[in-house]
């Protein structure tokens, strides 16, 4: 399989990614608030997980043996919601209720309201420890599901991430695969300038993790990296995915201003027009 992933699969995933990007722009535009930049940067990672790599059943979201995905960077909720809707957990029309009073699509994910959301997140730094707990529970029960976590690069500034990184390695939680959505931007500016988490690979390696660095927009690399994680025994794997914040919408790409600002109607139209012709 490695190196020879068929073109059909890649094209299928690219089309899903395009739809998910459209959804992200549309729903945040409609909501009038939200986080487009960090939602768009993680699209290929989440698309590859939900449409190819993870063992899930949208008709049976509580299936005990399903793989789990925890969006530790909870502000990318539109990305998760779009992926869940396109995967069949709920009708895509519901995406338009994002952030509205009474909606199941809360500003940050609420696992009690929406099927498919594994954990409520939003306060940064907490997803990895929760993944650790899930992995320990699975080990006690002899279940073989895997747990994927999406971390932001700015999020790595939270000390709790490193508490959890230490614990995952200590308990040899090899069912955990963490992605770092390394888009290099956070609210106040460039991650490296605000509070540099570099050198990231060395840090994770020093904490006992298997470390891979990839292009986070390349499906082949994402899939191969996850396959590598599946083969890795006795330690967790982190995939440091080099990404572009706002990826796929030219005027949002690598722009710090698009972290938490909704596009205006005319910007929504421009973005969708681009997404309809341009392969990200």
């Amino acid at each position: 399989m490695e190196g020879s992933l068929d073109l059909e699969l890649i094209e299928f995933l690219q089309e899903k990614a395009r739809l998910i990007r459209r959804d992200i722009i549309t729903m945040i535009g409609k909501a009038g608030s939200g986080h487009p930049g960090g939602s768009l940067s993680g699209v290929e990672i989440v698309t590859a997980l939900y449409f190819h790599l993870m063992r899930v059943d949208p008709q049976n979201p509580d299936w005990p043996d399903r793989d789990r995905f925890i969006l530790s960077k909870g502000h990318a909720a539109p990305l998760l919601y779009a992926a869940l809707a396109r995967r069949g957990y709920f009708p895509p029309e519901e995406l338009l209720t994002l952030r509205k009073l009474g909606s199941r699509l809360q500003g940050h994910p609420d696992c009690k309201s929406l099927p498919g959301v594994e954990m409520s997140t939003g306060s940064l730094g907490q997803g990895l420890a929760v993944a650790n707990g899930l992995a320990l529970a699975a080990r006690l029960d002899g279940r073989d599901f895997r747990i994927y976590v999406l971390l932001g690069d700015g999020e790595l500034q939270e000390g709790m991430v490193w508490e959890a990184a230490m614990a995952a390695s200590h308990y040899k939680l090899d069912r955990i695969t963490a992605f770092v959505d390394h888009n290099h931007l956070q609210i106040d500016g460039r991650v490296e300038e605000i509070m540099s988490p570099e050198p990231l690979p060395d840090k994770f390696r020093a904490f006992g993790w298997e470390v891979l660095a990839i292009d986070g927009h390349d499906f082949r690399q994402i899939i191969q990296a996850v396959h590598h994680a599946w083969e890795t025994k006795g330690r967790p794997t982190v995939i440091i995915a080099e990404t572009v914040k706002g990826k796929g919408v030219s005027f949002m790409e690598d722009q710090v201003g698009w972290h938490g600002v909704a596009p205006k109607p005319e910007e929504v139209e421009r973005a969708l027009a681009e997404l309809d012709v341009r392969q990200p």
Binding site: M119, V130, G133, L134, A137, M160, E163, A167
Partner: peptide, 18 residues
Amino acid sequence: GIAEQSLMGTAAGLALGG
């Protein structure tokens, strides 16, 4: 270990796992 945040987060995950 001496990591109370991790303690609570891990407990949450164990609860999610039943």
